[in-house]
Design a protein around this nucleic acid. Structure first.
Length: 810
DNA sequence: AGCACGCCGACT
DNA sequence: GTCGGCGTGCTC
C-alpha cells in the first residue's frame, strides 16, 4: 500500500490541465492535499500543488518520481481555499492551477535555474584538444565550466556574452556537459541576527569591570544592558565591529539568535485615535449589520449611500465589531493607489492590525504580509481585488467599497469577479459582506430586490451638506450659437465665479493626450497604429503620436501617407489641449492636470491631490481619476466635458458607466458647507442616463435601465460568455471562430434559451498584431453552456480566451 | 513553459 | 554531407 500525491504543476500553460502522480518519500509522509511541494518535472524542478492523495494497493506497480521537498512549514491551501479555487475554475472556466495560483504570493514559490557541469564519463583533456581544433571558442567555455562547475547559465553569459548559449547547446547535444535544474525557494522568511546577553545585568557589569582593557567589548555589553538586544545590522549604532561580537560569543557572554523579519512598508503611517460620533443614519445601518455578525452566518448587504454620506465610517465600525470578536476582515477597494484616504483612515483607527496589499509590494513583502494574516498577528487586510485571496483563517467580514467598479473584474485568466469570490468565501466562513456604492451595479441592485442581499440606505450627506445643483448643457445648442470652444459658456461662467470667490473647481474629460486623432483633410485618412486597429493620439509633450493600446510612439507624418497632401490636421480634444484652452481663457488660473501621463511616479497621484487640497491650485483637470473618492471641502464646481462619449460605445453597460461617472464626478462638488454646482456638457441631453445622473436619481435610472436589460436579455436577466479567438491572420481567426460557432450550435440545437452571436471582429480588432474575433453566448442559465465549452476542449486551447460574465462585450 | 525530437532548407 | 530553422509533443 502506497500513498500517491496528485500534483498540479505551477506553470502557466493552458494545455496541461491535469494532475501528475508522485510518490511520497517517508520523511514527508505527512504531506496532504493543500501542500505546496517541489517536484521533478521533465528535467526541471518545479513548484506543485498537492490536490489529492490516492492509495495504491499494490505498490511499485508504476515507476513514479518522488516529491523532492515541501515549500512551506505547513499546509498552504486550507479547505476553504481549495473549495474556492475549485469553484473559480468551474465557474470561470479556467484551469485549476490558475485558480490556485491566486492564493499564493507571487507567481511561483520556486525559481528554477539551470546549472552546467561536465559529464562524468567525459575525458576532458582529449575532448578539449579535439574541440580546440574545430571550435576554439567552445573549448574555452568547456574548460571554464570544468573549473567552475556547477555553474549557472547566467554566470556563463556574464563571462562570455550571449553567444555562449550556442556553445552550451552544442556541448549539451554532444553529451559533453550536463544541465541540472536547481530550484530556489522564493518569498520565504527573511531573518536577521539578534544578539542579547547570556547573563543578567548584574553579572554582566561584573564582567565589564574585568574587561577594562577591551573598550569595544565593554561598549557593546553596556549597550546590551541598556537596550536589552541589538540586531547585527545595527552594530554601528554601538560603534562596534563584527570581530568584537565573535569574541564575546566565544567567551560565553552574549548569544546570537535568528529572528524572522516581517517587512511592512506601511509601518510608519500614523495611528492617532479618532473619535468620530456617528450620524443617526450610520447608527441605524450598523444596527442592522451587527446582529448578523453575532450569528456567524453568511449575510450580504448592499450599502447604497449617496456620495459624501459617510460609508467609510460604517466600514470602520463594522470591522471594529468583527475585530472585537477576534475575527478577521478583508477590505476591498477598486484601486489602492486611488484610495489612500480609506487606507489612512483604517490605519489611523487600527494601526498595525492593518495590512495593506499593494501592487508594488515585492513577493517577499507580500509573503510576509500574508504570513502575518495567517498567523493572526494582523487582523485586517486592505487591498485591490487580489486581497480577496489573502489567507485569513477566520474571516468575519468582507467590505467591498465602490462595488460597481469594473476593476473588480480581473481582465486576464482567471477572469473572476471579486464580488462573486467574496460571496463564495463569506458563505464558507460564515462572514458578513458589505458592498458599498452610491451607484450600485445593476446586477447587484437587482439581486437586492430579489432578496439576495439586504438593502441599507444612506441618503443624507454628513453635516447636512446638500447635493450640488446640476446644469445640463446641450453642446449641439452651443454649436448653433457658433460657440466652438470645448468649454461651453455656462461652464466658463461657472469657473469664473468659482475662482473669483476663492473656491476650487474640477473638470473631467475622459481622454488623455492632446488631439485624439490625426486626419488628412484632403482624403480623410486617419493615422492608425501599425500594430493595433486604433487611431493614434497626438501628445504635445514630445510632439509625438502615441498608441494608447500598445504604447508605441510614432512621429507625426508631414505628408499624408495615402494621398501625399500636406493637410494633416489634429482633431478631438484630450486633457493636454483642454489645459491649454483653459490657460488661454483664464490666464491667471492655477491649473493642475491629472491623468496617466502626469501620474507616472509612485506617489504622483497623492502629491497632485494633496497640493490641490492645500489650495495650491484653483482647478484640477483630468481623466476619470479626478472623480474618485477624494474629499476636498473647497471644491464647489465640477465640469464634465464629454459626459456621454461612452454612450457611443457598443456595450450594454455604457449607460451604467455614464450614470456612475456623472454621479461620482458631481459628488466631488459641495462636500463642505458651501453649495456645489455642476455643469454637464453633452450631445445626448435627453438620454436617461444623463438625465438621471444630473438629478442623482438612482431609482429612475435603474428603472429605465432594467427595462432595457430585460428586453435584450442582458444581465441580470441573461448571462453572457464571451469567447475571443486570436490569430495572426484575420481569416484564420474568422475561420476558427466560425467553426466553434458551428459546433456550439449543433450541440445546443434543442435548447432555445441560448443565443449565439457572431463571429464579429472585436471593436478593436487588432492589438499588438493579433487579430481578435468575438463570439457572444447569451443564456438564461449558463450551466449547460459551460459543460459544452469544456467538452469541446475550448478551455485548454491557447488561441481561445473565455470570459464568463464579461464586464463589457467589446 | 521549456526542452527534446524531427523534418526541411542553406551552408562547408 | 552538417547546422540550425521552427513545428510538434511530452513532462508523473
Amino acid at each position: 500500500m502506497q500513498r500517491i500525491a496528485q500534483v498540479l504543476i505551477n506553470i502557466t500553460t493552458k494545455n496541461i490541465n491535469k494532475a501528475f502522480s508522485y510518490s511520497i518519500p517517508d520523511h514527508l509522509d505527512y504531506v496532504d492535499a493543500g501542500w505546496r511541494v517541489l517536484v521533478p518535472f521533465g528535467n526541471r524542478k518545479l513548484e506543485g500543488f498537492v490536490i489529492d492523495i490516492i492509495i495504491e494497493e499494490d505498490s511499485n506497480r508504476i515507476e513514479l518520481k518522488p516529491i523532492i521537498d515541501i515549500l512551506d512549514n505547513d499546509k498552504w491551501f486550507d479547505e476553504h481555499m481549495m473549495h474556492t479555487a475549485r469553484w473559480i475554475s468551474e465557474y470561470y472556466l479556467c484551469n485549476l492551477v490558475d485558480a490556485m495560483r491566486l492564493f499564493i504570493p507571487g507567481k511561483s514559490g520556486v525559481k528554477s535555474v539551470v546549472a552546467y557541469s561536465v559529464e562524468m564519463e567525459v575525458d576532458t583533456e582529449t575532448t578539449l584538444v579535439a574541440l580546440s581544433a574545430k571550435y576554439p571558442e567552445y573549448s574555452q567555455v568547456l574548460s571554464y565550466i570544468e573549473t567552475h562547475s556547477p555553474i549557472l547559465s547566467v554566470k556563463l553569459e556574464k563571462k562570455f556574452g550571449p553567444s555562449v548559449l550556442k556553445a552550451i547547446r552544442y556541448l549539451v547535444r554532444n553529451k559533453i556537459i550536463i544541465a541540472e535544474s536547481i530550484a530556489k525557494k522564493m518569498g520565504t522568511h527573511r531573518y536577521k541576527t539578534i544578539m542579547s546577553l547570556l547573563m543578567d545585568a548584574e553579572a554582566t557589569r561584573e564582567q565589564i569591570s574585568k574587561l577594562a582593557k577591551k573598550p569595544a567589548q565593554c561598549r557593546l555589553l553596556q549597550y546590551l544592558i541598556d537596550h536589552g538586544q541589538l540586531a547585527s545590522d545595527e552594530l554601528k549604532k554601538s560603534n562596534t565591529s563584527h570581530e568584537t561580537v565573535k569574541k564575546l560569543v566565544q567567551d560565553g557572554l552574549i548569544k546570537l539568535e535568528k529572528v524572522q523579519v516581517v517587512r511592512d512598508s506601511y509601518a510608519d503611517i500614523c495611528k492617532a485615535k479618532n473619535d468620530i460620533s456617528l450620524t443617526a443614519e450610520q447608527q441605524q445601518v450598523l444596527e442592522k449589520i451587527m446582529p448578523k455578525m453575532e450569528a456567524r452566518k453568511f449575510q450580504s448587504f448592499l450599502l447604497h449611500g449617496i456620495t459624501g454620506s459617510g460609508k467609510t465610517q460604517v466600514y470602520i465600525e463594522a470591522v471594529a465589531a468583527a475585530r472585537q470578536k477576534n475575527r478577521q476582515a478583508i477590505v476591498l477597494v477598486p484601486e489602492i493607489a486611488l484610495t489612500s484616504q480609506i487606507v489612512s483612515r483604517f490605519k489611523a483607527r487600527f494601526g498595525d492590525d492593518v495590512v495593506v496589499m499593494h501592487s508594488k509590494l515585492s513577493t517577499g513583502e507580500r509573503y510576509d504580509a500574508w504570513q502575518r494574516l495567517r498567523g493572526k498577528q494582523a487582523g485586517i487586510v486592505i487591498g485591490a481585488r487580489s486581497a480577496i485571496f489573502a489567507p485569513l483563517p477566520d474571516v468575519g467580514i468582507i467590505i467591498m467599497d465602490e462595488e460597481h467598479e469594473f476593476t473588480y473584474k480581473q481582465e486576464e485568466t482567471p477572469r473572476y469577479h471579486t464580488r462573486q469570490v467574496a460571496i463564495t468565501r463569506a458563505t464558507l466562513s460564515g462572514a458578513v459582506v458589505i458592498m458599498g456604492s452610491a451607484t450600485p451595479a445593476i446586477e447587484t441592485y437587482f439581486q437586492t430586490q430579489m432578496g439576495q442581499h439586504t438593502l441599507l440606505l444612506m441618503s443624507k450627506r454628513i453635516a447636512n451638506a446638500n447635493l450640488p445643483a446640476v446644469t445640463i448643457v446641450d453642446m449641439r445648442e452651443e454649436l448653433r450659437k457658433k460657440r466652438r470652444s470645448v468649454i461651453s459658456l455656462p461652464l466658463q461662467e461657472l469657473l469664473q465665479e468659482t475662482i473669483s470667490r476663492g473656491e476650487q473647481a474640477i473638470i473631467l474629460l475622459n481622454r488623455r493626450g492632446y488631439a485624439t486623432f490625426v486626419m488628412c483633410r484632403e482624403c480623410g485618412h486617419i493615422v492608425r497604429c501599425k500594430h493595433c486597429d486604433i487611431s493614434l493620439v497626438y501628445h504635445s509633450v514630445g510632439k509625438k503620436l502615441k498608441c494608447h493600446y500598445c504604447q508605441c510612439i510614432e512621429t507625426v507624418p508631414d505628408i499624408c501617407p495615402e494621398c501625399n497632401s500636406r493637410y494633416i490636421r489634429f482633431f478631438g480634444t484630450g486633457t493636454q489641449k483642454l489645459q491649454e484652452e483653459i490657460v488661454t481663457l483664464f490666464p491667471h488660473i492655477r491649473v493642475v492636470r491629472m491623468d496617466q501621463d502626469t501620474t507616472g511616479g509612485r506617489m504622483a497621484y497623492d502629491r497632485i491631490l494633496e497640493a490641490f487640497a492645500k489650495g495650491e491650485y484653483d482647478l484640477l483637470l483630468g481623466t476619470q481619476m479626478v472623480a474618485k473618492g477624494h474629499d476636498v471641502k473647497n471644491v464647489t464646481a465640477v465640469g464634465i466635458i464629454a459626459a456621454d462619449s461612452i454612450l457611443n460605445l457598443p456595450d450594454f453597460r455604457a449607460a451604467e458607466r455614464v450614470y456612475a461617472l456623472l454621479t461620482q464626478a458631481a459628488g466631488r462638488a459641495g462636500r463642505g458647507d458651501k453649495a456645489g454646482k455642476v455643469v454637464v456638457q453633452t450631445y445626448n441631453p435627453e438620454h436617461y442616463a444623463v438625465q438621471a445622473g444630473a438629478n442623482q436619481d438612482y431609482q429612475s435610472f435603474y428603472e429605465s435601465e432594467i427595462v432595457y436589460r430585460k428586453a435584450l436579455c442582458y444581465p441580470p436577466y441573461g448571462q453572457i460568455i464571451k469567447l475571443t479567438v486570436q490569430a495572426k491572420e484575420e481569416s484564420m481567426a474568422r475561420n476558427q471562430a466560425e467553426q466553434i460557432i458551428k459546433e456550439l450550435r449543433s450541440l445546443m440545437a434543442e435548447s432555445k434559451t441560448v443565443e449565439i452571436i457572431g463571429p464579429f471582429p472585436a471593436p478593436i480588432a487588432k492589438v499588438n498584431d493579433i487579430f481578435r474575433m468575438n463570439i457572444i453566448i447569451k443564456a438564461k442559465d449558463l450551466t449547460n453552456v459551460r459543460a459544452y465549452i469544456t467538452s469541446m476542449g475550448l478551455t485548454i486551447r491557447p488561441d481561445v480566451m473565455i470570459d464568463v460574465e464579461p464586464v463589457s462585450i467589446m
